[in-house]
Amino acid sequence: MKTRMFVIADTSSLTPQTVINYIVSLGKTLNIKDTCYGIMVEGDDDVVENITIKVREKFNADIFSKHRAYPIGDERRCRATRGGGARPGYYFLLEEYKLLPLISNVLKEGRFKTIDKKKKKPVDVDILKKAIKEKV
């Protein structure tokens, strides 16, 4: 068994229900959960991997995916049994979620440009000494 998370980029008009409908139309035996950030899919390893490839082909850069360690509704992670509060791992999701619209745009438009970053050199000791003598 394998579980995968599918996170929809904030700027996309895609809804979790659209993704669920598409997955259901593929006719595979899977356990799917609708969440606030997208969906979670659980099933046999090869079925889940196959679904991931198809979802990526269909929705391209609107959706991002990662392997999730815990099964859906696992008591150690699920908020329903933990008495509320953010689930462990939520902070990471929140942090990456902010970056998804930018990544999604870049991937869609194929804007792959590298920037030449010049490392900032530390200030010369003589300049520092001179500044100290002048101002102190």
Partner: peptide, 11 residues
């Protein structure tokens, strides 16, 4: 930012 994301993905 966007410029850094472009660089990030390109690399």
């Amino acid at each position: 930012n966007e410029e850094e994301v472009e660089d990030f993905i390109a690399r």
